[in-house]
Design a protein around this nucleic acid. Structure first.
Lengths: 198, 198
DNA sequence: AGTTTAGTATACAGATCTGTATCCTTTATG
DNA sequence: CATAAAGGATACAGATCTGTATACTAAACT
């Protein structure tokens, strides 16, 4: 029996090979053969780990979900210390993301664009990703004692989505800066006039 | 010689059949045969009017570009009369758009998600659509005498994009309402304190 | 040592996709 | 009327896609 979880498994190799292909070329346009070539693994092994392409797509999206959110949130928390500045730092982290040459927009937005059928596993993974990103923002809004944290969180989440899409479609990484400015206005508007706590 | 431009041409039939399929299933997932079936036209006629699938895609996107912007702007102008209220009306029009059961997000955003290669005709059509939508917003910002109309226009455009994507991915048409509230805050912040002119 | 398991390499079946060719029918216009 | 253009119906060529089958190899555990 092979040791599972030590080093990189074939499963992970396949996911790591598939993700950039899905991001760059889309899911439908990425064939199994292409994934196999980039993974250094044979087609038979792929189908030993995943029952179908759809299963591989789901596993890849779920993997990316955890990976991306963890990395994104850590970067935000490293860049700033107070809730308010962290909310603004979101857009700084976004800008460095947009500026990478491997930036092809949000994987989940693009996946939904290719899969309109509702109530599918793929759609749940995508909407859940967005829900958890919004929750991350929401908790920062709570901590900064916003007057209406739910509303502010949803507004900032929409600004972030808009910045992503604008950076992608119009190839303007500085959409993040514009969104940040708008965010600061919205945040100030919800600022409680209590004494600073830190 | 057939009369061109009278009644509906075969060309237009094909485009009108292709557009909802591209919107619902994506471009790569929509085959020529499917378009042919829905158009009531044969494959030979399709290739008599378009040299390739890519040409048909481009023609369909360009057609939709004009059609959508015209309809959208007219609705905004019918819903409100002053520049400021028209800027807000954008999000009301967006909400009725999001609420249609045939809403599958923005065709151009989805198209870019499937076609990452830059400097292609398809990408130009998509980014030009977004540029012209932003220009429409920009002119309203000028007319309402915003302090920094360029900045306000870009902020509102990002809010609109974010609302579209949120309505699509999370299936929340009321993302438009949230974006509208944020927009009103940003607009008020840029309001010139001159006497009303109407 | 021997057996099982995971993996490689490769061929292949069946479906689907783009684009072309063939043959026939309709229709418009000189 | 006659001729040419447009279109319908359908088959097909060649490529690609998903998923499976076959044959061989390397490694692990008993």
């Amino acid at each position: 029996m092979k040791q599972k979880g030590l080093r990189t498994t074939k499963r992970e190799q396949l996911i790591q090979a598939a993700l950039p292909l899905f991001a760059k070329n889309g899911i439908h346009a990425t064939g199994i053969d292409t994934i196999v070539e980039h993974s250094g693994v044979t087609k038979k092994t792929l189908y030993a780990h995943f029952r179908s392409k759809e299963e591989l797509v789901l596993a890849a999206l779920r993997h990316y979900d955890g990976q991306f959110r963890n990395s994104f949130m850590r970067q935000v928390e490293r860049k700033a210390r107070t809730p308010k500045t962290r909310l603004l730092a979101i857009f700084d982290v976004a800008e460095t993301w947009f500026s990478q040459q491997s930036f092809y927009g949000c994987l989940f937005i693009n996946a939904v664009g290719e899969h309109s059928a509702p109530d599918t596993s793929l759609r749940y993974v995508c909407s859940d990703f967005k829900r958890m990103m919004t929750e991350f923002i929401f908790e920062l809004c709570i901590k900064m004692k916003a007057r209406n944290p739910q509303q502010l969180a949803e507004e900032l989440a929409i600004l972030l989505e808009g910045a992503i899409v604008t950076a992608q479609v119009s190839q303007k990484p500085n959409a993040a800066k514009i969104a940040k400015r708008a965010a600061s206005v919205l945040i100030e508007k919800q600022r409680s006039h209590e004494p600073h706590q830190e």
